[in-house]
């Protein structure tokens, strides 16, 4: 028996959608609260998306599975937080951009270039090395406390949709700012990739290294550019997250969530990274808030924690039904 490939994908999507609206449908949850949870999930999702985005950019351009993306987010956030103690936040962000570009040069020079013709495992190990280096080095120069990034956005939440739901919905202003920033960043990247010669070169390299080099695109420069772009994406992620919860080591753990995100979205897909991040952000938050309590009650469990494994289970299911991810191209190995 041959089931068409879209059937399990559609079934899984339907299940997710059902899970999403179930709390509303049962009528036990106030719509306003449901929307708040949804927004909370989306916000986490934005961060996952940004980490996954940096990941996908580097993977597309250099085929390198960059474990260090999470560490880059932490490093960037630390840089902004500590620099901001001595200068205005905007200047600190510019400083962080300079630092991340310098890091891109160093990575290309010291890691990628010497290892370019080694196999993928060597490069993977190298990015693991970069991860530990950045985490340790970051602590050495920036310190290991929890630092604040004050973006000057008022703390008290805003009440919106008051006329739609009873009691309205409470939204944090920094969440709104974060969402707008993330959208602007993605828009700017899209313009960069579509309109500039460098963007075209990056897309060319992503599609075919040899052909790209043969039309005069120097790979080493492209790597510096793409690691710099990933660095800037890391800054945005780090500032959003750090501004909300403070800059601390746990930020770098977000990278562990980027893996299921890119499995879901497809390793080489920018839209996949964004959509995948949002799905996992919303999914795990919804599961934690609405699915965990009944499960705990029914099976007499010790606690929730769904948030921690939801992404991985979802990614595993996707690996089973659609290994190339939502937006990925199916790889057909040539014989």
């Amino acid at each position: 028996m041959n089931i068409p490939r879209y059937v399990p994908v559609a079934a899984l999507s339907a299940l997710l959608a059902a899970g999403l609206i179930a709390p509303l449908a049962t009528g036990e949850t106030a719509p306003g609260f449901w929307v708040e949870v949804l927004i909370g999930g989306l916000m986490t999702g934005v961060l996952y998306s940004l980490v996954a985005l940096g990941f996908v950019l580097i993977f597309k351009a250099s085929g390198v599975f960059n474990f260090a993306q999470g560490a880059m987010v932490l490093f960037a956030a630390l840089a902004v937080a500590r620099l901001a103690e001595r200068m205005p936040v905007w200047a600190a962000v510019i400083g962080a951009v300079v630092i991340m570009i310098a890091l891109a040069f160093a990575v290309e020079r010291l890691v990628l270039r010497p290892l370019v013709n080694q196999d993928a495992v060597a490069l993977l190990m190298a990015t693991l090395g970069i991860t530990f280096f950045l985490n340790g080095f970051g602590q050495s120069i920036w310190g290991s406390d929890i630092y604040e990034i004050n973006l000057g956005i008022p703390r008290e939440p805003m009440m919106v949709l008051g006329n739609v739901f009873e009691g309205g919905v409470l939204v944090n202003r920094d969440d709104i700012a974060a969402a707008i920033t993330a959208v602007l960043l993605v828009g700017a990247l899209a313009v960069f990739f579509r309109r500039t010669a460098t963007g075209r070169a990056l897309r060319a390299v992503a599609d075919d290294h040899q052909a790209a080099q043969s039309i005069g695109i120097p790979l080493d420069r492209i790597w510096v550019i793409v690691w710099s772009v990933a660095g800037v994406v890391a800054i945005v992620g780090g500032v959003i997250w750090g501004g909300k919860l403070g800059v601390q080591f746990s930020i770098s753990q977000v990278a562990l969530k980027a893996l299921p995100v890119v499995i879901l979205g497809g390793f080489e897909s920018v839209p996949g990274a964004i959509v995948g991040g949002l799905i996992i952000g919303v999914g795990e938050k919804m599961a934690e808030v609405f699915l965990a309590p009944p499960l705990i009650k029914a099976f007499d469990l010790a606690g929730g924690g769904i948030e921690n494994w939801f992404a991985y289970v979802l990614a595993l299911l996707f690996l089973l039904v659609r290994p190339e991810g939502l937006f990925g191209e199916r790889r057909i190995d040539r014989v």
Partner: peptide
């Protein structure tokens, strides 16, 4: 073996 930029 064709080495075009498939996405473009």
């Amino acid at each position: 073996n064709l080495a075009l930029f498939k996405g473009m």
